[in-house]
Amino acid sequence: SAVVMEEGSPGEVPVLVEPPGLEDVEAALGMDRRTDAYSRSSSVSSQEEKSLHAEELVGRGIPIERVVSSEGGRPSVDLSFQPSQPLSKSSSSPELQTLQDILGDPGDKADVGRLSPEVKARSQSGTLDGESAAWSASGEDSRGQPEGPLPSSSPRSPSGLRPRGYTISDSAPSRRGKRVERDALKSRATASNAEKVPGINPSFVFLQLYHSPFFGDESNKPILLPNESQSFERSVQLLDQIPSYDTHKIAVLYVGEGQSNSELAILSNEHGSYRYTEFLTGLGRLIELKDCQPDKVYLGGLDVCGEDGQFTYCWHDDIMQAVFHIATLMPTKDVDKHRCDKKRHLGNDFVSIVYNDSGEDFKLGTIKGQFNFVHVIVTPLDYECNLVSLQCRKDMEGLVDTSVAKIVSDRNLPFVARQMALHANMASQVHHSRSNPTDIYPSKWIARLRHIKRLRQRICEEAAYSNPSLPLVHPPSHSKAPAQTPAEPTPGYEVGQRKRLISSVEDFTEFV
């Protein structure tokens, strides 16, 4: 048969007729292969192709491409040299491709048809291009793949890379869960390890502090508590009631339409708007009261037996805890006409967050109470924005700035309102402590230090009264110190430094 060459192609190359033996071998191979691939376009007849790359030819070592076609129900084999250009295909004639002069020997084609199974398996396991790669995943090629499931790999992101949580363990979102698992493993320790309690022994800490320079003076030496005195035992138990972190309780009120001037209507609300609910979820963490331990979680007086509701929101960081007394989460009882059960919590909070959804101005004093010092007013606006402002009593104007209003988005509203309420509550605590000038409020841990110092002074006084020969370590507060001759004046800087060093040991009130 003659071949018409394309323009620009090399000279004529004689194409030899395939021997009958080659056709029989390739026909047997075509019957084993699956003929249901995917359909081509209507211009080209339905056909199945599979590209198999052999590394070497037997005796020649030339890479070839073998295409199996099922045109007219008769499979045909096409061998081509890759750099050459194939002729145009037609549905009426068999596929013809040019070969190099080196394939002119018909014996070479017979060798190609009689490829060993080793070469076929190696060509099938190679990388296939384009559409033949999808075909190689079918059941027909499963014989050339190794048996057994593939090893499982770690989760992959859409980009093909490992997620960040699997790369950096410290930033993994499941870090707290692993800590819980470690605690569970520790709890399952053997009885021999049960006595080993991690941490620092208080006796060891005391020993280090006792021999430090801070205890060089007799006034700073630790003293032993009497065991037989019940009054001192009660004082030590009272110390446990003062937490070592700051605590805040903040009221949250929802004002519906037409309720801006009605205290009873505001306290009777059992739910609010959708934006109000989203605002609550951002204030803190939802907790169930019956599962809380009052000595570990500050509840601000809420009952854990269901008297004040089942849930509330709280927030904490390293040095403070805040609980929100939310009116809509507290039960509304029919027998309580004046809502006294709610007001006994909300009316005693220094700061209230008022979500004013009424469309009218909310005035300070609508919720009557002796300790309502500051109101954080949240007014929802259009386009997911809110107006946040402050209202306070006249005696609080020096501590709280009420002249600045803020426009905040719904997303950042819980954070801004919480921070403003916490700052206002700190100012309210300082303002409330002014009624007792001898006990200015600095912080909870300073209050613990003052309680310890008062307890020490009482013990020293009782020891001096029981044994008059012992001198008083600290003179009583009601006694007057003996007159001392004025010492020589020293520079102001040295006096300030000495006073600062003494105050650092005794108390921190002056620095606050």
Results as ranks from 00 to 15, higher is better:
424 A>M: 09
467 N>G: 07
242 I>Y: 07
263 E>I: 02
326 I>V: 14
227 N>L: 11
229 S>R: 07
438 T>N: 11
300 G>F: 03
293 Q>E: 07
479 S>W: 11
244 S>T: 14
467 N>R: 12
413 L>Y: 00
491 P>G: 12
439 D>I: 08
388 V>Y: 00
283 L>T: 00
233 E>Q: 14
366 T>G: 04
356 N>R: 00
315 W>I: 03
376 V>A: 01
434 R>D: 07
229 S>T: 10
348 N>T: 15
332 T>C: 12
380 P>S: 01
331 P>A: 05
359 G>W: 02
398 G>Q: 11
281 T>P: 03
258 G>Y: 08
245 Y>P: 06
496 G>I: 09
352 S>Q: 05
377 I>P: 00
425 N>H: 07
278 E>V: 06
429 Q>Y: 08
417 A>P: 01
480 K>N: 14
431 H>V: 15
309 G>T: 12
230 Q>F: 14
496 G>Y: 05
252 V>Y: 00
394 K>Y: 11
485 T>S: 10
390 L>N: 03
403 S>N: 11
248 H>T: 05
236 V>H: 08
485 T>L: 12
487 A>I: 12
406 K>V: 15
497 Q>R: 13
249 K>H: 15
274 Y>R: 09
476 P>R: 09
224 L>V: 13
235 S>W: 15
433 S>W: 10
328 T>H: 03
241 Q>D: 14
365 G>V: 03
360 E>I: 04
384 E>W: 04
508 F>G: 15
238 L>H: 12
385 C>R: 04
293 Q>G: 13
448 R>Y: 09
484 Q>I: 12
489 P>M: 14
464 A>E: 10
451 H>M: 14
436 N>L: 06
497 Q>K: 08
242 I>R: 07
431 H>G: 04
498 R>E: 15
335 V>N: 13
337 K>T: 13
325 H>L: 07
306 G>W: 05
363 K>A: 11
408 V>F: 03
461 E>M: 12
481 A>C: 13
428 S>L: 08
488 E>K: 09
339 R>P: 15
242 I>V: 10
328 T>D: 03
281 T>C: 13
285 R>N: 15
493 Y>G: 15
313 Y>I: 15
282 G>Y: 02
295 D>K: 07
394 K>F: 10
474 H>C: 14
288 E>T: 11
339 R>D: 12
277 T>F: 15
253 L>Y: 15
473 V>D: 15
277 T>W: 07
370 Q>F: 14
412 N>W: 05
399 L>K: 04
479 S>K: 08
411 R>N: 08
400 V>K: 03
307 E>F: 11
285 R>A: 15
373 F>E: 07
395 D>W: 05
458 R>K: 13
220 N>W: 11
460 C>V: 09
400 V>Y: 06
489 P>F: 11
295 D>T: 11
338 H>N: 14
479 S>C: 08
281 T>S: 15
494 E>W: 06
396 M>G: 02
481 A>H: 12
498 R>Q: 13
415 F>P: 01
343 K>I: 14
369 G>R: 05
399 L>C: 14
315 W>C: 04
262 S>C: 11
239 L>T: 07
433 S>T: 12
411 R>H: 10
223 I>H: 07
305 C>M: 11
253 L>I: 10
313 Y>G: 04
402 T>W: 04
469 S>Y: 11
447 A>K: 15
459 I>A: 08
485 T>H: 11
456 R>W: 08
318 D>G: 07
493 Y>D: 15
238 L>P: 08
264 L>V: 13
253 L>H: 03
278 E>S: 08
404 V>P: 14
285 R>D: 15
290 K>R: 11
383 Y>C: 06
257 E>H: 07
422 L>G: 00
266 I>T: 03
308 D>F: 09
337 K>Q: 15
221 K>F: 15
484 Q>V: 13
360 E>G: 05
360 E>D: 09
282 G>Q: 04
303 D>N: 13
264 L>P: 12
304 V>R: 07
382 D>V: 02
397 E>A: 07
385 C>G: 06
237 Q>V: 06
347 G>T: 15
272 G>N: 02
224 L>D: 14
293 Q>I: 10
412 N>R: 04
412 N>L: 01
236 V>D: 10
387 L>R: 06
278 E>F: 03
436 N>W: 05
380 P>N: 01
364 L>Q: 14
274 Y>V: 07
232 F>E: 08
342 K>Q: 06
226 P>Q: 13
459 I>T: 13
367 I>A: 03
389 S>Y: 08
474 H>N: 13
346 L>T: 09
394 K>E: 10
296 K>L: 05
437 P>N: 06
293 Q>M: 12
239 L>A: 09
399 L>M: 13
299 L>F: 08
416 V>N: 01
246 D>H: 06
499 K>G: 12
224 L>M: 12
508 F>K: 15
316 H>I: 15
347 G>D: 15
331 P>N: 06
465 Y>N: 09
242 I>S: 07
